[in-house]
Simulated assay, not measured.
Amino acid sequence: MQPSVTPESASMKSLIAFVTTARLGSMTAAADAERTTQPTISQRIRVLEEHLGLPLFDRRGGRLSLTTQGEHFYREIAPSLDTLRDACDRFRRHGQGPAPSVVIAADAGFAHLWLLPRLPALKRAFPGFNVRLMPIDRADDPERLAADITIRFGPHAPQEEERLVAREVVFPVCSHEYAQQHDISGPLSSSKLAELSLLHQDIRNPRWLDWTQWCQHAGLTLAPDEGIFTYHNYALLLNAALAHRGVALGWSNLVEEYLVTGQLVALGPQITRESYGYWLSVKHHRSAVIEPIRDWLLDAVHRGEGPPTEGAGPRY
């Protein structure tokens, strides 16, 4: 006994099965495309044929081909079905709402020199997110406090729920040309420092080392009348070093790209303040949006760990 066929039997699934099979020329290929099985595709087409009361495919001889009626039917419904699918996709995307926005706040130097070069890779890793960088140096800035992810530089704060991004590692840097011009062939000494133009960022912030503090940690003496050229931000400071104007203090994570490309060379000695570094905190813990991005940032730093001049140009 033949099953009873009603207009509802010609469901969208049956129409899709027919159009996909006609387009691909195979029920097996249609099953793969629709992520189902070949018997399911066959059954859906049978239901459609029974509803229409005519065969849509010629199955004789082990080959599958459209009948004359099937060819006409395909030409009639395929464009309409494509239109319906496109409309459904558009409204489905609209129903999902706007992409979640994630704001990452960090000190200006870290934001421009470490985060910004990695922003394209971060967006590729999270294509459904709208990621914004916010370079802010003031710890009490309202926008910084409202950010989803914050990366700050300074000493460890036990009262804060923070993850260590990278410890502070500081060493002098200059251009290869400047090192050659001033015959720098090894770690700097107190007498050698007196011969060089020292570049410094005038930020008057106790979190950051200046040349006097760096020399104290390195066991060197800085001449009292040593001329130190000051710059308003770290990017200008590094540009001066790149332009062969002198020697700057380099924080490993901020100058690593210049070392890898050979634009700057690292000079010794290298000092590390164990309690200082870059610390990451998140506004909302256990967030399905924030945690994956936080983990990506931490992994990106760890993948780049190693001696400051690994893979770089010459070291003096």
Rank of each mutant, 00 (worst) to 15 (best):
V169N: 07
P7D: 06
A300M: 11
D107G: 15
L193P: 07
P55I: 07
H232Y: 05
D137C: 00
F18S: 02
V5Q: 05
L113H: 10
W251L: 00
V173L: 10
G250T: 00
F171I: 05
P135D: 04
S11H: 01
Y276S: 07
R35F: 11
V255H: 03
K192H: 13
V173Y: 07
M134N: 12
R75D: 10
K123Q: 15
P158N: 09
I228A: 06
A146I: 05
P79M: 04
T36S: 15
D202Q: 14
H302I: 12
I228H: 08
A218G: 05
P120Y: 07
F73W: 13
H176P: 11
R167P: 08
R60A: 10
G219V: 11
L119E: 10
A218Q: 07
E34V: 05
K123R: 15
R92H: 13
S14L: 02
G277D: 01
P307H: 13
T272H: 09
W214N: 05
Q180L: 14
P307R: 09
I149P: 13
M1Q: 04
N130D: 15
P117Q: 11
G186R: 13
L115Y: 09
H244M: 01
P3N: 03
Q270F: 04
Q180M: 13
L198Y: 05
L84N: 06
N239S: 09
D140E: 14
L119I: 08
L122C: 07
G311F: 05
Y178N: 02
P142V: 12
F129K: 14
N130M: 10
D58L: 08
T6D: 06
K192C: 07
H285Q: 09
R144S: 05
E226I: 09
R286I: 03
A223I: 02
D58T: 03
C174F: 10
N253A: 11
S275D: 14
L220D: 07
A125C: 12
P55Q: 13
E305P: 04
V170D: 15
T37P: 02
H94A: 15
S281V: 00
R85N: 11
R35T: 12
V282M: 03
W214C: 02
T261H: 06
E177C: 04
P135M: 06
I149W: 09
P308T: 09
Q43F: 08
V5L: 14
L199K: 01
P55V: 10
E161A: 13
F73T: 06
D58G: 03
P292F: 11
L193G: 04
L238E: 00
R204M: 10
W279D: 02
I77T: 04
I77K: 03
A30Q: 01
T83W: 12
P158E: 09
P79S: 08
S65P: 02
R132P: 03
H112A: 10
G25A: 02
M12P: 07
L164S: 07
G262Q: 00
Y276C: 08
V169P: 03
L52R: 09
H284V: 11
D148T: 08
A139F: 12
S197T: 15
T212V: 14
P3C: 06
R60L: 08
T36D: 11
H284I: 08
A10C: 12
L54R: 15
P3L: 06
S4Q: 13
P98R: 15
Q216Y: 11
Q43E: 11
S287D: 13
L56T: 06
E195L: 14
R46P: 00
A33W: 03
A235T: 15
